[in-house]
């Protein structure tokens, strides 16, 4: 028996909007730790890792570890039917091939339930090794989203270079080139507007903008994004989900042949 009650149901709506275009089908894993997902896109270039900790739910009952295969497009369709202020409860019985989403309006005057078919998904669970990153950039998520969108109108790839001076996002395309430098500024009034760079050595990596733009669909989940970069390692683009956990995107770099 599984029963997860999330008072801030909009979080789950936002999570699905953030990942449904990257991954078609995925297993949601439910354990005492929380509700999690790890899935790669079909070309094995990007991976999304989601964790919503059990403590973040108002009610969290998961009698035994359960893996539920869901089509994320269909799940997003169902969650779109929940109001932004609704409380969302996920329910599944042991051995059932369906999951039920229950939506309650804040005033309890409208209660809906949507039952979705589960699917069997063969997915490989990857071990993500702990890594020491050469550079960690923390910046406003809206700024990062704007940069990725702007650069993708010029080129297909972005070179992210971190030095003591700041973080540089560069692209080139048929019409020309673009460079955007964000300097460290931790003296702003609001912490969510700061750009903070921790660097042990300079790093420069090239990534496909198509994926970066897809990751920025998680912007509504957090005002801050963290980019963790090391030479020859996938970048980690992390959006923390307040009080609950995180959504992390891993993207393999482009490599000179």
């Amino acid at each position: 028996m599984l029963e997860l009650r999330l008072v801030q149901g909009s979080l789950l709506k936002k999570v699905l909007e953030a990942i449904k275009d990257l991954v078609n089908d995925a297993n949601f894993d439910c354990s005492a730790t929380g509700f999690s997902l790890q899935a790669m896109d079909s070309s094995h270039v990007a991976l999304v890792a989601l964790l919503l900790r059990s403590e973040g739910f108002e009610h969290y009952r998961c009698d035994r570890n359960l893996s539920m295969g869901m089509n994320l497009g269909n799940m997003a369709k169902m969650l779109k039917c929940a109001g932004n202020d609704d409380i969302i409860t996920l329910k599944a019985d042991d051995g059932s091939d369906t999951v039920t989403f229950m939506f309650e309006s804040p005033t309890q005057d409208k209660i809906s339930d949507f039952e979705m078919k589960l699917m069997d998904i063969d997915s490989e669970h990857l071990g993500i090794p702990e890594a020491e990153y050469h550079a960690i950039v923390r910046m406003p998520s809206s700024e990062f989203g704007r940069i990725c969108k702007d650069l993708s109108s010029i080129g297909d790839t972005v070179v992210i270079s971190v030095t003591k001076e700041g973080v540089k996002f560069s692209t080139r395309g048929d019409i020309g080139t673009a460079n955007i430098v964000c300097r460290q500024n931790n003296t702003v009034d609001k912490p969510e507007e700061a750009t903070i760079i921790e660097m042990t050595e300079p790093v420069s990596l090239t990534f496909a903008l198509r994926y970066m733009n897809s990751f920025t669909k998680a912007t509504p989940l957090s005002s801050i994004v963290t980019l963790s970069l090391s030479s020859d390692l996938p970048v980690v683009v992390e959006y923390k989900i307040a009080e609950m956990g995180y959504i992390r995107f891993y993207l393999a770099p482009k490599i000179e042949e």
Partner: peptide
Amino acid sequence: PPKQGTLNKFFAGN
């Protein structure tokens, strides 16, 4: 142009 790598060589399956 640089070639797109995949994640398989970074993350071990288990």
